[in-house]
Design a protein around this nucleic acid. Structure first.
Lengths: 339, 339
DNA sequence: TTGAAAGCGCTAACAT
DNA sequence: ATGTTAGCGCTTTCAA
């Protein structure tokens, strides 16, 4: 009796044989069906223990098509972005609490990859999906919603379909950041945006514009740069900005990867923050305090977003007919020393 | 003809019916079996396209038990650690290239969670697993290896069983870091270790000790602190160290979360790096340059480790009998301004 | 209260 | 070259 046997998967059949009952009865015991004799139940449970039986999730999913409580897909645009890592953590904690496993798909902002993963997710018969679509009109995710698969969107919604969504106050958050900059006396405030087609980028830009207007600062479109939400574009666009004949005196960075990239450029140029150039980031990181200088940032409740998304998804899986909801989370301006 | 129909999963059966052939023939077409008439193949392929047919991965796995080329499990101790995020990226890229999906399990250094995930992974009939076990004698992973499931370990091996493993030169890396510190004139060099039972922690400690010896510095055990590889323990242990009657003049941090935690403490105390306290981290981050001050660190090729692990796993899935191998990756000391 | 059997979608052995 | 069929492990009628 080697320990190898401990790990050979035993099936319903083996349990049934050993317990001297039919597989149907074993199945009933496992699923807590009330219609089973207490004695039989005890006997079967004992055998299940002895055999270290674990139900085969694959067979279960094949049989049940869905809603069998075991697999959730997560479609993430960029795992390098600490924001999504936190969201993922939130999702994962809730999933674990509810015995769901996660199938994680990081599509790196590549639409082809997104499509492949969506196909895979579907053909894995996931019970539901948490996704951050590439844009509001993402046909791939939209179709999936239409097909009836339970879906919760995070960070970005879908325009053409009714879907649960967890958002943050992008516009307000951006406003508070830029307003802070303006009130501190900065006049030439630049905005480095993430992917322009993202609703979040647009909303943050709106907040930026409004704050400038409210503070009587004219909008200079050379100070607005659009990137791809990645570290490299933070590096590059910050460089462009700093090389301008009349460079900005402050930068509002559209996400944390961009912030990190911009910081890199600023440091390479040997500029001092905030005396030579101020910077404020959208999205905080727990180690922002250890940056040079400690970063002022708009904090999104990323972990909480993940939790809410997962909770909502489970609710929807259990009741596909429930009305859709959209939840908007607050942001918080964390003032440190970068402006 | 609503777009909803586009997403209803069609089965082999439907394709077969529509194409006027048997499901076996369709299966053959899908799996590129040579034994099929070119004309038939064309006809079937057309129907597959029309119906937007995608094979059901669940049925496939149920049927094949494993080695059907589609699902890899990843068991990660801490997704908050940027090192593992990079490893994950490497794994994911290779998986994607080979059409594997990833089922991600982050057990947050919780052994119960680890066990549950291992059970799930097994009952999902994954083709293989990439894992960073909790310690060398991790029975749970060891048993799984014995059961014959293809497994590759990263960052830490398994003592009681033969298994593929991708390691880094922990001892050399630590040595180079501490040697650098010693040569720079630091005398009281502390080591904040991650979880003591991890082979990597032990190897790094060995490198630390050897470097001290080689430089004629006596080992002071009050300067060695053991934590749990997390940010908080970096914060706390650094505090303890700094509060010592005779505090260290330099800190060697056992991993990047600890480094970040230690930095936080140092900044909170208002100490200047490196004049009042030097610090060097094991494991680099791409934004280390933007830390205060730019961090000197031992760089591990994390992304590469992930890639190699996934490549090796796929090799093993395709040939379970191949001899096991262990690969040791080099580290590199990146000198910036923190010491 | 329990069992027998159909069927989820697929592959592969066997038959034609 | 193609079709028929058994069976992977499970849930769920339907019968007993």
């Amino acid at each position: 009796m080697s320990s190898e046997n401990d790990y050979k998967m035993s099936s319903l059949n083996e349990v049934a044989k050993k317990a001297g009952v039919s597989i149907a009865t074993v199945s009933r015991v496992i699923n807590n069906s009330p219609k089973v004799n207490p004695e039989t139940r005890l006997k079967v449970q004992q055998v299940i223990k002895d055999l270290k039986y674990h139900p085969n999730r694959v067979a279960k999913r094949l049989r049940n098509k869905s809603a069998s409580g075991n697999l959730i897909g997560v479609l993430i645009p960029d795992i390098q972005n600490p924001f999504y890592v936190e969201v993922l953590r939130g999702i994962e904690d809730v999933a674990y609490e509810n015995k769901y496993a996660l199938i994680m798909c990081n599509f790196s902002q590549d639409e082809k990859k997104e499509q492949l993963y969506l196909d895979i997710l579907q053909s894995e018969s996931v019970d539901g999906l948490i996704a951050a679509p590439t844009n509001e009109h993402d046909q791939k995710v939209t179709n999936l919603v239409k097909s009836g698969l339970p879906i919760v969107c995070v960070d970005r919604g879908l325009a053409d379909v009714d879907v649960d969504v967890i958002l943050v106050e992008n516009q307000n958050g951006a406003y508070s950041a830029v307003d802070h900059l303006a009130k501190a006396g900065y006049k030439r405030i630049a905005y480095i945006s993430g992917l322009r087609q993202l609703p979040s980028s647009q909303e943050r830009e709106a907040g930026y514009s409004n704050a400038l207007k409210a503070n009587g600062i004219p909008i200079d479109r050379t100070l607005i740069r659009y990137g791809d939400s990645r570290h490299e574009s933070g590096v590059k666009l910050c460089e462009e900005l700093l090389n301008l004949p009349s460079p900005p005196d402050a930068i509002f960075a559209g996400n944390n990867l961009i912030t990190l990239g911009a910081l890199e450029t600023i440091h390479k140029k040997g500029l001092t923050i905030p005396s030579q150039i101020a910077i404020i980031g959208f999205d905080d990181m727990y180690w922002s305090i250890s940056l040079n200088p400690p970063l002022t940032a708009v904090k999104q409740p990323a972990y909480e977003i993940g939790r809410r998304a997962a909770e909502q998804l489970i609710l929807r899986i259990n009741d596909p007919a429930r009305p859709t909801m959209s939840m908007v989370m607050k942001t918080e301006l964390v003032v440190r020393s970068s402006c």
